[in-house]
Design a binder for these strands. Structure first.
Length: 653
DNA sequence: ACACTCAGAC
């Protein structure tokens, strides 16, 4: 039984209240001579709409309530379902939980308390205002429920990070004999996506069975579900099968590829989306820039940036921050700066992204200056801000500053989390304060994690402290036994101290547990093609030319002072073999390739999946001097700018 | 005229 009611015509008394209330119509009512006939024509029906839409009128009552409720209380009008629904909808739009509760209370005192449509509006209001529990309470107390009630309450849990409860309600709904429609399925899929792949697949089956598989909302949620499970092929199948598409399903697909760092695909889909006649939204740009950022695809990112400029979309923080981050991660600190300067409005994230970009490029002083400017402008720093600043200090050897900012952070009542402690251990360790770092770990209020000990181990490798290094490595092996990195670090610590037997034992232990070292690789993009190089790998079509080129370069830099440093190479091969292997490092091959295939004088940008080796770092400095070009090398977490024989990191990395 | 899908910084 449906109990929709129609909107009764307004009575004269409301009109009078509305028209003569100087409190709410101060200017117009006070000055304009009143012609009742005309005004009736002008206000009928629209008067409530006007009040409800106008934020000032909606809330402006002396007791902090809602004007329309006052009108009802004063007997100026009788309430009706539509009026309540409109009010609830407005509270929902504006996210006003408190006022929504007032309307709810008012409904309970009215004769509309059992109207399903009104109750549904109340559920929806609570759901959207972040109070799924209150929504559930109203739902539970309903004598009769319809599809909308179920959908509203399920959505409440789905949108408030309580996916499991949303799915529970969905099951109950099916048990009650309801057949879900596209509205329900949209929300349920979102919840299922958060719970797991199996649940997602089950709901997909329900979508097909109930005949809603081709709805855009359901389809978008399905694409997103498969994308978030990492099943991009299945996401594409669902996407291709949709008879009508919209921006959202395109965005879901693009975002999926972006999460997998598949920048080429994300960019290709971006252009296909435009060709298909859809406008890219802030969501689209944000995803594509994030994808480019993750692999450092500067040229592709720039190309998409061009489209953003042409689109006329404002450079709001939401997309601007990602763009800034992309330029930072793709190696162009200049462009990152330009974006920062052009942002319409900067939020904390904008500042954090700028700080991150400076920190990643080894600009410790600039990072600190940027932070001070941020504070002087009254922007409240958060935990991430301090992480950026501490990282910058650590990477640039600003020990005193780092210690100062760590204290400042606590003074500002921001609680350092484990990542801040890791950075502090890194800061102390890199600066050679190993004892201090060890003491810091002992005294920290949180239980040290593997990352803490890895930071200490790295510092021990750098400063050749065998005993502490072995101790730190033991802690890492307990907490994160399958990471190859710490094994190799420890083995190298022993090897460089001449303790070859110990080094061999670590290698053996590693091999016995089946731990594989991640192969080092370097890559660069030239005209939208990515060229990848792996040490001692012969797969590149120009491999012979590349090798010969590097030999030529190596000879030339030897003449200006380069001496190969073999201490970083595996200790169990003889000296000559060591040198051969050293000259096959992936970053050297990539550099030789760049010299062969890029314009004279242009900046060379190379990316590497692990930390650059010491010998390559030295060689790159000499090459930058030899050829008079800037070389930018991206490590796992920082950039080296080689120019005129030196590096921006000041050999501190 | 009460219900649905896509999102960024360390």
């Amino acid at each position: 039984m449906k109990r929709y009611i129609t909107n009764p015509p307004f009575s004269d008394s409301i009109l009078k209240t509305v028209l003569f209330s100087s409190r709410h119509f101060a200017s117009s009512a006070a000055t304009a001579p009143l012609d009742l006939e005309e005004d009736i024509g002008g206000f009928t029906g629209a008067s409530f709409g006007g009040i409800i839409q106008d934020k000032d009128l909606l809330w402006k009552t002396p007791n902090g309530g809602l004007y329309v409720l006052d009108l009802i209380d004063n007997g100026a009008t009788d309430p009706n379902a539509t009026l309540y629904n409109q009010l609830l909808k407005r509270c929902t739009q504006l996210g006003r939980l408190k006022e929504g509760r007032l309307v709810h209370a008012h409904v309970l005192n009215s004769s509309y308390r059992n109207y399903v449509a009104v109750q549904n509006s109340i559920i929806n209001m609570y759901a959207k205002c972040g109070s799924p529990v209150e929504a559930r309470k109203v739902f539970d107390e309903m004598a009769e429920r319809d599809m909308v009630s179920w959908t509203a309450v399920i959505t409440g849990f789905s949108q408030n990070d309580r996916a499991q409860e949303a799915l529970g309600l969905f099951v109950e709904m099916l048990r009650d004999g309801f057949v879900p429609n596209q509205f329900t399925l949209g929300s349920v899929l979102k919840a299922a996506t958060a719970v797991g792949e199996m649940e997602g697949r089950q709901v997909h089956a329900v979508c097909l069975k109930s005949g809603h598989g081709d709805d855009v909302y359901v389809g978008s949620a399905l694409v997103d579900m498969y994308a978030k499970c990492g099943q991009m092929e299945e996401a594409e199948v669902v996407f291709d099968g949709l008879t009508s598409k919209n921006e959202v399903c395109w965005n879901a697909l693009i975002a999926g590829h972006a999460r997998k760092s598949e920048a080429e695909i994300a960019v290709r889909l971006f252009s296909e989306m435009k060709k298909a006649g859809f406008e890219a939204t802030h969501f689209t740009y944000s995803s594509v820039f994030a994808a480019c950022a993750s692999i450092g695809a500067l040229e592709q990112g720039k190309w998409v940036h061009g489209h953003l400029v042409k689109s006329g979309l404002k450079l709001i923080a939401f997309v601007g921050n990602t763009l800034l981050d992309m330029y930072g991660k793709a190696g162009s600190i200049e462009d990152a700066h330009k974006v920062f300067d052009r942002l319409v409005k900067r939020d904390v994230v904008s500042w954090n992204s700028m700080l991150t970009a400076c920190a990643q490029h080894g600009l410790g002083r600039e990072t600190v200056e940027c932070f001070e400017e941020m504070r002087s402008r009254g922007i409240l720093p958060n935990e991430v801000t301090f992480l950026c600043v501490l990282t910058a200090c650590s990477h640039s050897g600003l020990l005193e500053e780092g210690l100062y900012y760590f204290e400042l952070m606590k003074k500002l009542k921001l609680e350092p989390d484990i990542s801040h402690y890791v950075t502090m251990v890194d800061l102390l360790g890199r600066a050679g304060q190993l004892g201090h770092a060890e003491k810091f770990i002992k005294e920290m209020p949180i239980k040290p994690t593997a990352a803490i000990w890895k930071a200490l181990l790295g510092a021990c490798r750098m400063h050749k402290n065998i005993d502490l290094g072995a101790y730190a490595a033991e802690r890492v092996f307990e907490l994160d036994p399958y990471d190859s990195g710490p094994h190799i670090l420890l083995s190298n610590i022993y090897a460089s101290a001449g303790r070859l037997r110990d080094a061999a034992n670590v290698r053996k232990m590693m091999n016995d547990s089946g731990i594989k070292k991640e192969p080092a690789c370097s890559w660069l993009e030239i005209e939208n093609n990515v060229h990848m190089f792996v040490a001692n790998d012969d797969s590149h079509p120009q491999r012979n030319e590349v090798r010969r080129m590097w030999e030529k370069i190596a000879d030339k830099i030897r003449e200006i002072g380069y001496v190969p440093d073999t201490s970083h190479v595996l200790w169990y091969v003889d000296q000559q073999e060591r040198e051969v292997r050293l000259q096959c490092h992936s970053e050297k091959l990539a550099l030789a390739f760049a010299l062969l295939n890029t314009r004279h004088g242009s900046t060379i940008r190379i990316k590497k999946n692990i930390r650059v080796c010491g010998d390559c770092h030295t060689a790159f400095k000499f090459v930058s001097q030899l050829v008079g070009r800037e070389i930018i090398l991206r490590d796992t977490n920082r950039f080296h700018h080689f120019r005129g024989g030196s590096c921006s990191c000041g050999d501190y990395w």
